[in-house]
Write a protein that binds this DNA or RNA. Sequence first.
DNA 1: CCTCCTTAGTTCGCAGTACCAACAGTTCGT
DNA 2: ACGAACTGTTGGTACTGCGAACTAAGGAGG
Lengths: 147, 147
Amino acid sequence: MTTTTTTKAGTESAFATALVRMSHVVQYVFADVSREHGVTPQQAQLLCVLTGGPIGMTELSRLLHLEKSSLTGLVDRVERRGFVTRVSHPRDRRACRISLTPEGARLGEKVHGEICARLDVLGDEMPEADRLRIATALTGVVARYAT
Amino acid sequence: MTTTTTTKAGTESAFATALVRMSHVVQYVFADVSREHGVTPQQAQLLCVLTGGPIGMTELSRLLHLEKSSLTGLVDRVERRGFVTRVSHPRDRRACRISLTPEGARLGEKVHGEICARLDVLGDEMPEADRLRIATALTGVVARYAT
DNA sequence: CCTCCTTAGTTCGCAGTACCAACAGTTCGT
DNA sequence: ACGAACTGTTGGTACTGCGAACTAAGGAGG
């Protein structure tokens, strides 16, 4: 399908470019904060997700967009560090739910808070209205992706 | 179960949350498009950066936020696939510049175009003015990060 | 009870990512 | 010419992520 869809110069989109750049900044902030706390970004993300309560592997793999086989290793490493534990399901002996240890909960909250703080700083010079408008618009974009 | 942490701390920032979610969407789009073209996201990003012209390793490592040692391997793998070549600098025998092969240039353009297209689709239901405002605001945020 | 099918999570092998420390070769300042 | 500074590489380690094959445990239906 090498149709003449003008894949040449017509692809200059300030909107898309801004989104991509923004994404990079978020990644860097995430990486910086994670590193300062001695975990990898993926491990930090796992902790953040779990602050909402224990979750099973299958559900977790859906939330993190990871294959279950990838998740096993990730949980292994985080468990080895003492931040989560596998809690066996009382009714279903196959299943387990990943639960934060007190230490893991503390770290998760801290990392989450710091990431939010650093991102907020980036927007604290624009009017509150603009900030709100961006948040709303981006949320709409995210919702549209799920379609 | 639901820990009802709504009355917890004041670290609930819709702005930061929206940025993080948006970042994930961009990551997924990037991953999808890259995979469909048989390269990894990192390799695709390298190709995209190089569409602006050949760049040396040191400069490239700054652009991609990678250690030079990490970059060596990345360039190796992309070179093995035939998408880039190391061109030795005529004046400085230490340096080399990474240049796209015709095939690499084609792939880079294609990937870049498709990523932009898919991101644009996510915003094509909001008014042009809003889209522009978001782009401008986000660009400002990105600029502020560099500070 | 006993198959058959599904689900939950794991194991294994592989390719890739990324860091750090140490290194070789080159360039350049003095 | 000597040493500092720079360019890119190597080697070693840990982590990421996938797919295929697997074990164990539900959940029908006969």
